[in-house]
Design a protein around this nucleic acid. Structure first.
Lengths: 222, 222
DNA sequence: GCAAAAGTGTTCCAGATACACCCATGT
DNA sequence: ACATGGGTGTATCTGGAACACTTTTGC
């Protein structure tokens, strides 16, 4: 039951930063650790890479296990390998980050187990290992990519309105955006189309609903 | 002499794509493999990560061992971990890329051992493992970063002229660049300064020499 | 004095920004 | 009818692209 090698081998894990939008906030999924080290501390979902699965598959598996959702935007972020980042043994962590449409989680959300939680990015608890650093880098990447890719649509539900999309950008960049310029810019990308329907909500003019023409396609702009 | 683990562990290597400019070409350092698998095939320099060293230190060590140069721009590229990328066992490779100033290598260049060579990027031999893929990604990253960072100066010698710098950009992007606009743009970055001296070379007006104000600093533009 | 490459400034265009009014709804 | 937020166009600015002539040297 032991595995032997001629040379020492580190353990390799995959950790995933899972972002979504809930209650009008940018949220991250965290897990309360049940085992040593850092028992009781919150941490990013992750686990050891199976010898027969690719890194991406391992990340997908984590994503599925924790959210019940198979499909989401998933991208490798960075590999963290300081010798002492895990007190047990040398552990190298390949970090990924995932973007989940806010509607994909509705069902699973209800059955949130004890020890799993969505945290607003500016109300994060102290995290285990170097997970704060990983999370920080994921956030920076997300903010940066918002600018030159169409990544943001990966966080939107099937149908959404222009004000909702704009609000997402404002949430992530923490800056106000002019509605007219925003709509112009987004429509010029030619990646969303009106569904023809609209959403009435409150005592004002209804907002048009849009949908992404081809989901799965994340394009780098220009 | 054996290392035992309760669970299977992959091996972890660091591979480094080392770029430099020589003979007016963008070159990459490759090593001829002396061991199975892929004996005799060219490959990126790399090796197993020591259990006590960080990933970055491992990359630095490879760099030093192969080029004799300790300092260079070094950045993590991506982690490659397909289950079958190495026929021996599961090997996960954390790839880095390095940029060496063209003058740093002069000494070592002469003593190039058999089985080590600088290859022009469009005259590459068939590579071992998935190293072609790694190299390809490094090249894409280099081209992309040229645009929005001051990374290019890492490839220049201590002193250089504006036409030389422009030529470097042309080599990497494979596009002609207008000399006037180029000079304007580069000087606006405010990262280089004239040395006051100039370089006479051929039957024409000498070019001013410039130097980087603060090497080590790679800034993202805007 | 001629060939060869370096230095340099202005005009133009496109994409981004600033900005205000009318429209459709619920109450 | 009025309050609320959504929809939309134009003028301006700014950064990038296009573009040509003068300068300094070696021969």
């Amino acid at each position: 039951m032991a595995y032997e090698y001629e040379y020492p081998h580190p353990a390799v894990t995959v950790d995933v930063v899972i972002f979504t939008i809930r209650s009008d906030e940018l949220k991250v999924l965290l897990i309360k650790r049940a085992l040593e080290p850092f028992v009781g501390r919150w941490a990013l979902p992750g686990g050891f890479v199976d010898l027969k699965e690719s890194l991406l598959d391992a990340a997908k598996r984590e994503l599925r296990e924790e959210t019940g959702v198979a499909a989401a935007y998933l991208e490798q972020l960075y590999t963290f390998g300081e010798p002492d980042r895990d007190p047990r043994e040398r552990v190298i962590s390949v970090a990924y980050y995932a973007l989940m449409p806010s509607d994909a989680l509705e069902i699973k959300a209800a059955s949130d187990a004890e020890g799993v939680g969505w945290f607003t990015i500016d109300e994060l608890p102290e995290l285990a290992f170097d997970h704060s650093e990983i999370l920080q880098m994921a956030l920076e990447r997300l903010v940066a990519k918002l600018d030159y890719s169409t990544i943001a649509f990966q966080l939107m539900p099937e149908e959404f309105t222009m004000p909702e999309l704009r609000h997402l950008y404002e949430l992530i960049t923490r800056e106000e955006i002019d509605a007219r310029n925003f709509a112009k810019r987004i429509l010029a990308l030619d990646v969303i189309e009106p569904t023809g329907r609209d959403r009435r909500e409150g005592a004002h003019r209804p907002a048009k609903l849009y949908r992404v023409k081809d989901r799965s396609k994340v394009e780098v702009i220009k």
